[in-house]
């Protein structure tokens, strides 16, 4: 499924749909980054069309931040290439086409919110009004406050306002809601979503499955520096709808089970056979009518389990 979803995105990004002149917001191919022998990012390909809202989902340490740093030109890939709107990251940033909201830091404590915005705006050739950006980020009321006196959530909104002021085509957010409470998180995402209505492309990294589910049109799952799934939220959810069937069947015929429609993996644990499938009825019917299997149990996986299955240590099977 990961293959089909990726190729759909590629086809749409290509010349086939009558928008040939529109460059993809992000085109990264074969990104690889190694730190002292540890491969943090291992051949990542990402293509994002303009207007998409994409979640970059993975557990901590999966390589999200390292990938984002390369996308933004903050670090150079050992191998691979990045194009943003057809330009190098530095050129795209120079023209105000791309901005980013980083996880922490990036603010001067001794300056007011408004001065931070004035300073940021002064660095770009074209900007929207500072008040409009503050308004959209929901911090117009604290413009005269010193940054060091702002709460974590307010500082995060300020980072968002700074990212908005150049009216970029693409905003990249690296775990933007870390450390926010539930309410703050919700209203922060509302602000982002309201903003995306004008067609702004958004790529956000998160390790909260919920956030990816609620706020993205498309999810790219990363694990140990590799993309393990890439599809629309609905497709990833369909994956989550899969079930696990277990039955007692000494000497199980694995090949027959694997040939059933919807079966993803077949595992034999002693005398028990464990089948992961998107069509549990077919497997159960087969087991109970065509085989000597007994003691059949069916458990459904939730989104959480699918996520863990795709990103956890035993993920190799899921990718087969």
């Amino acid at each position: 499924m990961s293959e089909t979803a990726t190729s759909t995105a590629r086809a749409a990004a290509g010349a086939g749909d009558g928008r040939a002149s529109v460059r993809p917001a992000i085109e990264a191919s074969g990104l690889t980054k190694t730190f002292r022998g540890f491969t943090a990012v291992d051949g990542v390909d990402i293509s994002v069309r303009q207007g998409e809202v994409v979640a970059f989902l993975g557990p901590n340490g999966a390589g999200k931040t390292s990938t984002i740093d390369m996308l933004l030109g903050l670090s150079q890939p050992d191998r691979g290439e990045v194009r943003l709107f057809g330009l190098t990251p530095r050129q795209a940033i120079g023209r105000g086409l791309v901005s980013a909201v980083m996880q922490t830091g990036g603010l001067l404590g001794d300056v007011t919110v408004r001065d931070t915005m004035k300073l940021t705006a002064s660095l770009f050739a074209q900007t929207t009004s500072i008040d409009a950006a503050l308004e959209r980020a929901g911090i117009a009321d604290i413009a005269d406050r010193k940054v060091s006196k702002c709460s974590g959530g307010q500082q995060q909104r300020l980072r968002f306002a700074m990212a908005l002021v150049s009216d970029p085509g693409l905003i990249v957010l690296d775990e933007p809601t870390t450390g926010m409470d539930v309410e703050g998180r919700h209203s922060f995402w509302q602000a982002i979503h309201a903003d995306a209505r004008r067609g702004r492309t958004v790529l956000f990294a998160t390790h909260y499955l919920e956030e990816a589910d609620q706020y993205a049109d498309r999810i790219i799952l990363i694990r140990k520096g590799r993309i393990v799934a890439d599809g629309t939220t609905a497709e990833i959810k369909a994956m989550a709808a899969g079930r696990t069937i277990e039955a007692e069947w000494p000497g199980a015929d694995r090949d027959a089970l694997a040939a059933l429609p919807g079966v993803e993996t077949v595992e034999v644990r002693g005398t028990r056979v464990v089948v992961r499938t998107s069509d549990s009825d077919a497997v159960a019917r087969h087991l109970l009518t065509q085989t000597p299997a007994h003691d059949v149990t069916i458990t459904s996986q939730n989104l959480e389990q699918a996520f863990l299955r795709l990103t956890g240590d035993d993920a190799e099977g899921a990718r087969a």
């Binding site: 928008r19 002149s21 529109v22 460059r23 069309r49 303009q50 207007g51 709107f85 057809g86 330009l87 795209a92 023209r95 086409l97 009216d167 085509g169 004008r198 067609g199 702004r200 492309t201």
Partner: peptide, 8 residues
């Protein structure tokens, strides 16, 4: 303007 068909 719309932001999903930007000409760089």
């Amino acid at each position: 303007e719309r932001l999903d068909a930007i000409d760089p």
